[in-house]
Write a protein that binds this DNA or RNA. Structure first.
Length: 318
DNA sequence: CGGTGTTTATAAAATA
DNA sequence: TATTTTATAAACACCG
């Protein structure tokens, strides 16, 4: 229970691992990739807890970025000034939190270290990385680069975004919106009501938001509305205005009334585009991913980073 | 030099 | 309780 006078939940450690926090940040970006500094910013903006001991947790975060194969590094193009590379999610990492826990994944995503992919075709990578060239192919920056990096990617889904105003058209196959799709079925139809999530989290979450995105990622994308709605002074009030996300394209997040009862908050099916997506596309299983993975490049053009990102990936068992 | 990445080691936590 | 995953610390390379 939050103590009004004392520290509210906002000051406590969020129930998210660094991996989920980072994924959250990346997913919140329009390009589905962020430089390190922006990942820091995202986390600090919304989680007061991480406004302290920055050296400690940022070191951990960097460790996670390097160590975990689910994160891939995408070099900057020359016309994109700034420090360091962009970080994106590996297209094949799938729904890392399908178990509903953002604290710990069920399995760790590990890529298959294929043969050292020699040539780093950065020109091509940068070519596709460029927005102008992406639009021709309908790719996001991250995906374009990932494709150029020889990382398998999945067929496109119907474009969808949190607030329905984005016009870039493309959504990363594992964009949270898409990931949510399966979770929607799993959670809503699978008999795990949002109340259970609240129980799982051990504290109330803004589970009544107008869509599953904000339910699954309580701190992503819907803050504008949350701040104006009666949410207990819990994590729902991490409540830092979501100014740093979903603003790049000037979009505004519509304020949505938040019913108290989770069941009453279910949006019409039609507003859950993910449901229109082929469920198998959600790729909860490595095999389905492998079957659908598409490389835009000949293997020879693939590029491997230090983590050896290659076409084949697999969820490590045991 | 400071920010970014990588890597190793170990402790702690969560799950099976 | 054993195993797996995550957190933390720390050393070090790289680079603008």
């Amino acid at each position: 229970m939050p103590r009004p006078g004392k520290n509210s939940y906002s000051d406590q450690k969020p129930p998210y691992s660094y991996i989920s926090l980072t994924a959250m940040a990346i997913q919140s970006s329009n390009e589905k990739m962020l430089p390190l500094s922006d990942i820091y910013k995202f986390i600090m903006d919304r989680f007061p807890y991480y406004r302290e001991n920055t050296q400690r947790w940022q070191n951990s975060l960097r460790h996670n970025l390097s160590f975990n194969d689910c994160f891939i590094k995408i070099p900057r193009r020359p016309d994109q000034p700034g420090k360091g590379s962009f970080w994106a999610l590996h297209p094949d990492c799938g729904d890392m939190f399908e178990n509903g826990s953002f604290l710990r994944r069920r399995k760790r995503f590990k890529i298959h270290r294929a043969e050292h992919m020699a040539s780093k075709n950065h020109q091509m990578l940068h070519y596709l990385h460029h927005p102008h060239n992406q639009t021709k192919l309908g790719l996001s920056s991250a995906e374009s680069a990932a494709s150029m990096a020889g990382i398998g990617r999945l067929p496109h889904f119907q474009p969808y975004n949190i607030n329905g105003t984005q016009s870039t058209g493309f959504k990363h196959p594992f964009a949270i919106e898409n990931i949510i799709g399966r979770d929607y079925k799993g959670v809503m139809a699978g008999g795990l009501p949002l109340a259970s999530m609240m129980h799982h989290f051990g504290y109330p979450v803004p589970s009544q938001l107008s869509n599953m995105v904000s339910s699954m990622w309580p701190h992503v994308g819907m803050m504008d509305s949350m701040t104006s709605v009666a949410v207990p002074q819990d994590y729902g009030h991490f409540g830092v205005p979501m100014k740093t996300i979903c603003h790049a394209s000037g979009q505004t997040i519509p304020a949505v009334p938040l019913p108290i009862k989770p069941t009453a908050a279910l949006p019409p099916v039609s507003t859950i585009p993910s449901l229109t997506v082929n469920p198998s596309s959600m790729c909860s299983s490595p095999t389905s991913q492998a079957g659908m993975a598409v490389s835009l490049l000949a293997p020879s053009a693939a590029h491997s980073e230090s983590k050896g990102t290659m076409l084949h990936s697999v969820l490590v068992h045991s």
